[in-house]
Write a protein that binds this DNA or RNA. Sequence first.
RNA 1: GCCAGAGUGGUGAAAUCGGCAAACACGCACGACUCAAAAUCGUGUGCCUUACGGCUUGCGGGUUCAAUUCCCGCCUCUGGCACCA
Length: 816
Amino acid sequence: MYDHKSIEQKWQKLWAERRSYEVVEEDEIPRKNRRYVLDMFPYPSAAGLHVGHPEGYTATDIYSRYLRMRGYHVLHPMGWDSFGLPAENYAIKEGVHPRESTWKNIETFRRQIQDIGFSYDWSREINTASPEYYRWTQWFFLFFYKRNLAYRKKAPVNWCVSCQTVLAREQVVQGRCERCKSEVIQKELEQWFFKITEYADRLLQGLDTIDWPESIKLMQRNWIGKSEGVNITYTIDGTDKTVTVFTTRPDTNFGATFITVAPDSSFVKECFTLFPEQANVAKYVESALRKTELERMAEGRVKTGVFTGWYAINQLNGKRMPVYISDFVFSTVGTGAVVGVPGHDLRDFEFAQTLNLEIIRVVVGEDGDISSITRAEQVQEEKGVMINSGFLDGLEINRAKDQITKYIEENGWGKRVTNYKLRDWLISRQRYWGAPIPIIYCDSCGEAPVPEESLPVLLPDDVDFLPTGESPLVRSKSFHKVLCPKCGRASRRESDTLDTFVCSSWYLYRYTDPKNTSEFASKKKMAYWLPVDLYVGGAEHAVMHLLYARFFCKALYDAKYITFDEPFTKLINQGLIIGEDGQKMSKSRGNVINPDDVVSEYGADCLRMYEMFMGPFEDAKPWSTQGINGIRRFLEKVYILFPKSNHESFHGQISKFQRLEQLLHKTIKKVTEDIESFKFNTAISQMMIFINEFQKQKDDLDTVHYKLFTTNFLLLLAPFAPHIAEELWSRTGHTASIFKTNWPLYKEEFIKDETITVVVQINGKARGEVNIARDADQSFVLSEARSNERVAKFLAGKEVKREVYVKGKIVNFVVA
RNA sequence: GCCAGAGUGGUGAAAUCGGCAAACACGCACGACUCAAAAUCGUGUGCCUUACGGCUUGCGGGUUCAAUUCCCGCCUCUGGCACCA
């Protein structure tokens, strides 16, 4: 039994004393030899570390330690994303100040993380809730404000009834709060926004330049939701008014039979008093406006609408199209008005059905159907050939789209436009535990930014946190003792705080220069370390955090603070670790594994290796308390196989361990390649294969070879199980840390086999195998194959119709 | 509904520019050591079959000398989006 506790404590203490993992920008180390390996920093919850945390941290730690052994200068920091609602809610429940509980949680997290032996540079630790940090978060707000990328407006916003605050669009999941799953309603409020939409196209373009999982890129693309179409303007018959619709399907415009506008659209507001059907319209609009956007979007609602009394003229064919108002059309999408083509759009079809509107077929059905469209199944949306469409007849829809778009533009009836689903980022929160928004309101001067030199705007302590729907800061007495920076008169501060995603959008820069008091980070240090070479974390941040951080990066690039505009060159998502029962780990299910218990019982090295051995890094994997025993046995075996003192003699014949030497080189190759591609599970399997073989042969080895094998193996093991590797390394007479030693290199000539095994198949079924020289010619291999005893038995009395030989791999005889 | 990703032994999984399916590990069984147990070591372990052999990568087709891998259709699960015009 190896004593993991004393070994692990010993080395963790030594690494800390020697400050082994602290790095600085060194002029003599060129930029190409530096790497920045980053974990998504944790939210220090009261529950403490979860086994999911060390999964990602172990992977980046293995990778960082490996890179150092390959001679790289590695920045690998850790910090705390410590502002946010859960801390505040916890504080309310427990009757403590969120600062107190958060600081305590950080202590726990730090201790737990340090117990696992990660090679973080702790001198760079950051905490987003500390004034030294949030001072710069506030600076970023001013940065956006000055660049005209932050603005305040009154808008319908999403409001969580339980958290009692507004949420970003990204934080509303299926009409519910992403955090607490409570109902989200809509409110009209004056709020601060970041103009992320200005970067929509660049956020889309940039995805093509980065090495991220395709699934994440796709999610971001969908979220940005670029759609290219045409804004077509129709005149209203008998008036001087026009209505402009946005459509991505101008090709079906010969099939247009009505126009629908959103009840809250500018068109309705402008023309309200002019509609001939005034009374009906007023009634419908009033009831529609009482519903929230979320209610209007509720699934399965029967579409309703009201006729305005107006007709729009379709210039293409002179058709008079009735203009309706309906709440299935949203003012926030496109122009807030759509042209109804009920034959080829399911929503338009449903609307036409309930209101008994005309339906015209303009695309031939997939099965050649050209009958009139009366059933939803006949509504063909995405492919086909045009019909009943004048000059477009016979064209495939995409060609028709090109032609008619040109035609519409040439006639001045409309023009090409691009729309995005992405909305501006709502950053105000009506809660306490966040960075105050650095704005001052003066009765005479209006809104003014807090001067940079007055930052930070400190969070006051004379506050009652109980959520009332109003920011707790509103009722602080000390907080609002402020003078207008313009006229000097007594003013009030903005009392909302910033969304915590603002804090986490720029932390990667701060790590390069965490103590800087005059800038968020110096340009020189950012230029040296950034961008982040490898970023690892959970896929739950696919859209929000990762999109916001990319937006910040592009804004900084435009302001010439940095020379790159994508913050994370490579991204890898870790898979979820689920409970032994196959369910997601949660307190209520009682299936939570506490890493502290695992470290205490099995050791940090064992926890690290087990988490890596469980399965592919990016897949979800269930925890197995029995499975971890296998890793413990492996470490135990390694510990016993290595001599405690460095002088023991061995006797043996060279020929006996040639195969072991070959296996060593294969192992070096496999482990090296697997670390680089984050396939830690198979790297560990390979190490086990080596150790199993080594165990069988070790008594026959001479001292020189014994040392060769153990030394090289320990180097491979070191990034995975750093404590035991350091310990055994020091016991074999080394005084320097194993991590100061170069990573072993394999030699291709040791790996190549002189003789190879070729499988012999008959009709595709393996029936035997032959050993041949690597470069044996085909006729020789075939004759060897035929003379194989078992093969010959199967071939006896049968006619071989065909012989296949794939060099060095396989022989296949095809028989009748 | 739409878009991704995944389905392989009792379990976690391995092998996919087509070439011996199940490496490595867990578990289980038997054996050694032990008074005994644990630990450790050894042997075995996809399914059917006494054996010869046959069958097997969610289901059904196809291409190929050869398919877990490629193509077509379906089923299930996970994640994301959801009246975006």
